[in-house]
């Protein structure tokens, strides 16, 4: 379970003004939820995601993951938490260009101390499950953007994380491929995986079980979605 308490993130602008990207945000995410965070540009969606992921220290408030306030941890402990409990998916995929698909997927497992053999074997299973069995030894630049995003999803799943944080995961995809990726998210979520996804696309946001709409750093709407993921 993730508990967000009074989360505030303030940036200083060049003219010494303070810009509140997040302003006293409170909500919790239960295990197995699929939360879509939506809102206009600059509403604080990505800031919220990075803060939940332990990548951006909040100005105030706390992010509690399984009873641990992640910003009470040291940087090294937080890195370990990211490695083992959180899977990240980005709009631009962020695959390592000189690693092939299986190596990209296996990387977090190897970083967590798994043997290369075990990590590769697990990566192969996940990639095959995502219909990428024929792309194991292809480099990112040699596969389609949809396939790249599926490799990024496979990478986020390899360590069996407690939550997947996806930042505009369909932002670089055509509508058809985007729907394919959403179907994949729904399938992963149906197996009990918690997902928090940031998207500016209202239609895609409705694919989750719950939608949080941010407006100028504050929660404007927090609704369960009828007919969301079953």
């Amino acid at each position: 379970m993730i508990q967000i308490n009074s989360l505030t993130k303030c940036f200083e602008s060049t003219d010494d003004d303070e810009i509140y990207a997040l302003d006293d945000v409170n909500f919790s995410v239960d295990d197995g939820e699929f939360v879509s965070v939506t809102g206009p540009s600059g509403s604080g969606k990505s800031t919220l995601l990075f803060t939940i992921g332990g990548l951006m220290t909040p100005t105030e408030g706390e992010v509690i993951l399984n009873d641990i306030d992640i910003y009470e941890l040291t940087a090294a402990e937080r890195a370990r938490l990211r490695r083992e409990k959180i899977g990240f998916i980005f709009q631009t995929f962020n695959l390592v260009p000189y690693l092939d698909c299986i190596e990209n997927t296996a990387l977090p497992a190897i970083m967590s101390g798994h043997s290369q053999k075990d990590a590769f074997s697990n990566a192969e299973k996940i990639l095959t499950g995502l219909a990428l069995g024929h792309r194991l030894h292809h480099r990112p630049m040699t596969i389609s953007v949809g396939e790249r995003q599926r490799v990024a999803i496979a990478r986020s799943l390899i360590n069996g994380p407690e939550v997947i944080l996806a930042d505009e995961p369909t932002g670089n995809l055509d509508p058809e491929t985007a729907m394919g990726v959403m179907d994949l998210f729904k399938e992963i979520n149906s197996e009990g995986q918690t997902i928090i996804m940031v998207t500016h696309d209202h239609n895609l946001a409705k694919q989750g079980k719950r939608m949080i709409r941010l407006q100028e750093g504050e929660i404007a709407v927090d609704n369960k979605i009828a007919g969301g993921v079953q």
């Binding site: 890195a79 959180i86 962020n94 977090p108 970083m111």
Partner: peptide, 16 residues
Amino acid sequence: IRELGLLIAMGSPLKH
């Protein structure tokens, strides 16, 4: 820098 950012985000220890 993006690869480094990615590795840090994925929890790669800085010392590595």
